[in-house]
């Protein structure tokens, strides 16, 4: 396996989850991710496997909005008798996440003392996370660190499944890498797993998916004995000089075309009584320079002053 793909193997010291042979209490697996990642496929494989093993299975998901990049989750419960189709908070035996932030979102559903957390380190950043024009703005993603997760969960694995699948030549096999990882913590036999997984993937992709499954399985086995590596995701963000924006408008050149007013994303310009472009909401201006670039008469100049320069001017 590729050393680089190992982002972090957190406190991995416990044994595979052994089902009580009778499984009087249902076993709960929560599978989460983002629309299009293959969450439903993972849950279908697991449900089929458990059913073939003779358990009663309930698999519950909510779709509808899922195709549109929203969060997707699927509850799989199996045992001698399963009532509720959903897993209560704090009751999941295993949480499989195909995306980092989604894994964190569902963490409170995991059993505190015995729950196993297997999470792809893949980050899918929604457009909302980058909607900030302010100078020096930071991305709104998750700020939680691998250490916080490891302190919370009894057994946690952060696996770069997407990159491992990419290296096999098919990034869509990332969910099968995670199934391989899952296979080490559930007590179904390897032939059972392989038979079920191959029956759920397209014929043309059986070879790559079998390789992906083995990769995930071996990764966990090795991770259990390896020492945790650094969390690459926790890299420090660069520090940027603090700017403030100031507009210089040459009234004599403005011909009242209103292009800047109409196209300013923050709507901070208006035409004044003399129909000259004027800054009316300077606190909203982000200094994006759109007005400067779009003004056909070069009547607007945007100055980005560093804090030091502002202080200087004030003096």
């Amino acid at each position: 396996m590729n050393e680089q793909s190992k982002i972090a193997a957190l406190n991995a010291d416990s044994e595979p989850v052994a089902f009580n042979a009778a499984l009087a209490e249902p076993f709960n697996v929560l599978i989460v991710g983002v629309g299009g990642q293959g969450v439903i496929m993972v849950s279908k494989v697991l449900a089929a496997l458990a059913q073939a093993h003779g358990f009663e299975v309930k698999q519950s998901e909510v779709h509808g909005m899922a195709k549109r990049g929203g969060a997707v989750f699927s509850h799989v419960r199996f045992g001698q008798r399963v009532w509720s189709p959903t897993i209560a908070k704090g009751e999941a035996d295993v949480l499989i996440a195909l995306e980092w932030a989604e894994g964190l979102r569902w963490l409170p559903h995991l059993k505190r003392d015995t729950g196993v957390f297997i999470c792809d380190t893949k980050r899918i950043v929604p457009p909302f996370a980058c909607l900030n024009r302010k100078l020096g703005a930071k991305m709104r993603y998750s700020t939680e660190t691998a250490e916080q997760v490891s302190a919370y969960v009894s057994e946690a694995y952060a696996i770069d499944a997407t990159r491992m699948a990419e290296e096999l030549g098919n990034d869509r096999a990332a969910n099968v890498v995670l199934l391989g990882a899952l296979s080490t913590v559930l007590e179904f036999s390897l032939p059972e797993w392989e038979k079920t997984v191959t029956s759920f993937v397209p014929k043309k992709t059986i070879a790559v998916n079998t390789a992906a499954f083995e990769l995930g399985r071996n990764w966990i086995v090795e991770a259990k004995t390896a020492t945790p590596a650094d969390d690459a995701a926790a890299k420090a963000a660069p520090v940027h000089a603090h700017y403030s924006a100031r507009l210089e408008i040459t009234d004599a050149w403005c011909k009242s075309c209103e292009i800047c007013v109409k196209l300013c994303p923050e709507r901070c310009l208006t035409l004044n009584a003399d129909r000259i472009a004027t800054m009316t909401a300077p606190e909203k201006c982000t200094g994006c320079r759109l007005c400067e670039w779009l003004c056909p008469d070069f009547a607007i100049r945007v100055h980005l002053d560093t804090e030091a320069a502002v202080m200087e001017a004030a003096r």
Binding site: G35, R68, L107
Partner: peptide, 12 residues
Amino acid sequence: AWVPEPVVRPPV
């Protein structure tokens, strides 16, 4: 429970 607060992910 520790409640992480990752980015919201409404459908888009």
